[in-house]
Each structure stands twice: as structure tokens, then as C-alpha cells.
């Protein structure tokens, strides 16, 4: 059974398999977000990224994001897969698929998902540069809330 909606994996992610997971006869839109490994950040050149996860909790937190999305945007279906391990430039690190009867919630919920991943999901990346390495933290310059409300702006969602 490859039907887990919220997964942390070590193998390459198939975007198509996530689309399949959210397909629905009542859906009028499916959005996908594909997060890939970027080579240049500022002036630094990345050789590859190393992702690590607290896997059982990470999958739980991904499922929580799915639940939050279903509460905010009823009738959506969500699937998220995050890859860990060593990832080369341009490799796919995360895929989020959201289906919805209408397009707007599909776009909004998809953006919400990636913002929440960066807040609450216990996954870390280590940058390998030409001249060194470092674990990256706190990209959003905030600390995840235990039960918390999302930090993204609300005004466009209602």
C-alpha cells in the first residue's frame, strides 16, 4: 500500500503519485508545490543538502497540517511527502498536492502547507558548501508553537 497521505521518505518522490492521492471526482483543481534543492543562496554555492528528520513525529506533524487545512478549507484533500538523506542540486525535497472543488482554496491551502512545514515539522537541513557545512535553522525567524496558530496572513483566506 503506497497510500500514505503524509510521508517522510528516503527515495526520490514521484509528483504523479501525490496527484493520484488527492484526485477526487468533486475536485475542480489540484495544485502541486515542488520544493527543490537550490544551488546558490546569497553568495554561497551549495554542493548538496543533507536532510534529517525525527521521522515518526514529522509524519504526525504533516498529518496535523493536513487536518488544519481541512478545517480551514473544507472539501480539500491534501498529500505531503518530504524526502530526507543526501539531495543533489535540483532534487525534489518536498511535494505538496492539494485538491479542491475550486482553484482558490487549492492555491491557498498549498501555500499554507509549506509555511507550516517550516514552522512545526521536525526536519532539518545541512548545507554542504565548497568550503564548509552548517545545519540551517530558523528560516522563518520564529519558533514553532506547540498547538499554535499559523503565522501566515489571514486576510486573503476568507
Amino acid at each position: 500500500m503506497r497510500d500514505k497521505l503524509f510521508e517522510v521518505v528516503e527515495d526520490p518522490i514521484s509528483v504523479d503519485s501525490l496527484i493520484k492521492k488527492v484526485e477526487d471526482r468533486n475536485a475542480g483543481a489540484i495544485t502541486t508545490f515542488i520544493g527543490t534543492v537550490r544551488e546558490i543562496t546569497g553568495k554561497k554555492k551549495t554542493i548538496y543538502l543533507e536532510y534529517q528528520a525525527y521521522k515518526p513525529m514529522a509524519e504526525k506533524m504533516l498529518a496535523q497540517i493536513g487536518k488544519e487545512i481541512n478545517e480551514r478549507w473544507p472539501d480539500t484533500k491534501v498529500a505531503i511527502t518530504h524526502r530526507i538523506g543526501s539531495l543533489d542540486i535540483s532534487a525534489i525535497a518536498v511535494v505538496i498536492a492539494v485538491s479542491s472543488p475550486h482553484r482558490k482554496p487549492a492555491y491557498q491551502a498549498n501555500e499554507y502547507a509549506i509555511e507550516r512545514i517550516k514552522q512545526i515539522v521536525p526536519i532539518w537541513k545541512k548545507e554542504q558548501w565548497e568550503d564548509g557545512e552548517a545545519w540551517i535553522g530558523d528560516q522563518k525567524e520564529n519558533v514553532p508553537y506547540p498547538t499554535g496558530k499559523p503565522e501566515i496572513k489571514d486576510e486573503d483566506n476568507d
Binding site: G35, K118, I120, P122, W135, G137, Q139, P146
Partner: peptide
């Protein structure tokens, strides 16, 4: 968990530094 929460023997604790997934 929050600062005041109580951890008991048998519990698994994880220290979660600022996350950087995505």
C-alpha cells in the same frame, strides 16, 4: 510540550532545534 509539562520515566523526549524542512 510546554516548559511546565512533566516528563516521567518511560517517556521519549526529543530536543527540537529550529526546524528547516521544505
Amino acid at each position: 510540550a510546554l516548559d511546565g509539562d512533566i516528563i516521567q520515566t518511560g517517556d521519549t523526549v526529543a530536543i527540537i532545534p529550529p526546524v528547516s524542512g521544505g
